[in-house]
Design a protein around this nucleic acid. Structure first.
Lengths: 341, 341
DNA sequence: CGGATAATTTACATCGATGTAAATTTCAAG
DNA sequence: CTTGAAATTTACATCGATGTAAATTATCCG
């Protein structure tokens, strides 16, 4: 910057003013400085600016795994929303060794980040303290009892209830569910199971433990495996609601392999509305969380905290919308707003 | 840091030494400093360190869109490879407005990054200069004529030739191809088309222009649309090779809708081996680029450049491996190494 | 044309961590 | 109980951009 200033015959501060778009800079000055800048191919040193200014305009986004379509699509939405506000996003994968989720916020502060959007797989009760840091954080998903951090989430209970009611309205009565944790449902899984149970209750049906199938992770392979188990158990069922689309796609794969027709023999419903679900065969009925709404809210709240006066007001809780997208896997025909054809 | 030093009764430099793991620090000193650190909840200011040290240990990864499974899976691989070397990854999406790819490297240098891995959709001849910067860059995909930057890529020609030969070996002779750009093939598309043509030539077949179908983007919807056009054209065909899996999945969707059976009526082959392809119905035969190998090579070369002596040696060209994964969409049965079941 | 006001530019200190080189302490051997 | 070498710690300058406040220049009006 010194060099540019010297070449333009002005002070370093003037160069800085030009580059940071300071209001009171004359046109000729601006032109002169810009010439010098391009002649020397100068670029500002971001680290120095960050140090001086005290912020980086970089936000962290912590997700379990980018290779899961839901999180990739979420990341895309977050990056766009952040970009529109002039922020960049640094993505952290928390599920690094495919089985253990590391959750220490301080791990993420290694990189100078102004704030963090945290989308955990499952926040267990004890994790609350980890999040209760004096640093701007917005948590996506289940709100945690006693947590003082900001949350953006849809109502998993309600959404899953709507999805299950849809299945029941089609006349199915033996509705299986895939996706609880092997060691008992917590977090998102617990809420979705709750919605499922509530829906059954409206039809006067008691949940049958034999129809509740666990999945270690929510990947396609776990869906295949869970469905194989369900079929092997010989428990009769005529529908299955899955806690995410990957599980549902895996389950469909297994059903297909066993010659079971979808939806004739088994109705399948997913959750997340990832892109694949519109293009699978059959296309998948699923709950579509409004991802852009989630991303937008998270970004807005986070930036508000960052640029705010630093006071720690009451935690904010935003509930985002969702919609049920009905496709072939439940009705045989596709009518949802984002269906494939 | 001053405060920590004061509390521990030592100089700031000693605190710095302790925290950066300097060799000659006595045990009692280390303990004393660490106590002070945790008592004050001190965390180093990364911006200040970056300024002083002159690097950030952050690498950029520029991909068109994270919501495309191939790039999400690639990003995952890159993040892991970088993490193992102590680097973090900042992801940039270049396809911001869904149609226009911005490619200026300097756009990405807004964020203090030590180096960049750039995975362009299509580098056109004129783009060479944009990449010929004095900054560590590794380009993924097609090597560009005259480019002086490092490249990591598989042989698209060869891989597509192998895929097409597979189709021909099944007895199909009217092999369509989906994925050229509407305004003439460039970059990756050109190479893959080349491989297709070469394979046909081995069977003494001339490429038929009517069987070469373009796609504006390589998303599922474009695959659907391309296949609809092909079917509407009434040109007979008994197989289709697609330039990526998303196109193939979209094409399968369209075939299904028209009551055409896969693979009986039409053999379908994709490219990329994204996770969906193993779980689609039918599962998709595809070329599997060795993503981890690509990521590892890119990271190794990039870090070598960054940590090297700054000399600008000859550009490096690494060719990574691939394999043909044969699944139901070509043979009716799945035998590939990463098949679904 | 003087004087006041606004616009523009400048000098200097500062953000916080770390490299350098010098100062101090520690320790083994004589 | 020296003495020299090694180990440990310290003082100080520095990375590069920007906020502050003061200095300078331009502009306008009576």
């Amino acid at each position: 910057m010194r060099d540019v200033a010297a070449l333009a015959g002005v002070s370093a501060k003037t160069v800085s003013n030009v580059l940071s778009g300071y209001e009171h800079v004359s046109e000729k000055m601006r032109a002169r400085v810009m010439d010098a800048v391009s002649e020397l191919g100068y670029e500002v040193n971001v680290s120095a600016r960050n140090l001086r200014v005290g912020s980086t305009r970089v936000l962290g986004l912590a997700v379990p795994e980018l290779s899961q379509a839901y999180f990739a699509e979420l990341a895309d939405a977050v990056i766009r929303a952040a970009g529109a506000r002039g922020y960049t996003v640094l993505i952290e994968q928390t599920l690094v060794d495919r089985s253990l989720e590391i959750t220490t916020v301080s791990d993420m502060r290694r990189h100078s980040i102004d704030g963090l959007i945290y989308s955990p797989l499952a926040v267990r009760p004890g994790d609350v303290d980890l999040l209760d840091v004096d640093f701007p954080i917005v948590v996506l998903g289940e709100k945690v009892e006693g947590s003082r951090s900001d949350h953006v989430a849809m109502s998993n209970v309600e959404a899953m209830k709507v999805a299950t009611l849809h299945v029941l309205s089609l006349g199915r009565r033996r509705v299986a569910v895939i996706g609880t944790q092997p060691d008992g449902p917590v977090g998102t899984a617990a809420s979705r199971l709750h919605g499922y149970v509530e829906a059954l209750a409206e039809y006067g049906i008691d949940a049958d433990a034999d129809l509740i199938v666990s999945a270690a992770l929510w990947h396609r392979e776990n869906g295949v495996e869970a469905m194989e188990r369900l079929i092997a158990s010989a428990v009769p069922f005529d529908a299955v609601v899955c806690f995410n689309d990957a599980l549902a796609l895996g389950a469909m794969r297994a059903l297909h392999r066993h010659g079971l027709r979808i939806p004739d023999d088994v109705v399948v419903v997913g959750f997340d509305d990832i892109e694949d679900s519109a293009y699978s065969t059959p296309s998948l009925t699923t709950v579509s969380p409004h991802r852009d709404e989630i991303a937008q809210n998270a970004i807005d709240i986070l930036i508000e905290r960052i640029e705010g006066d630093g006071a720690r007001p009451d935690p904010r809780r935003v509930e985002t919308g969702y919609s049920l997208v009905i496709r072939e896997s439940s009705t045989g025909v596709s009518v949802g707003q984002r269906s494939a054809l």
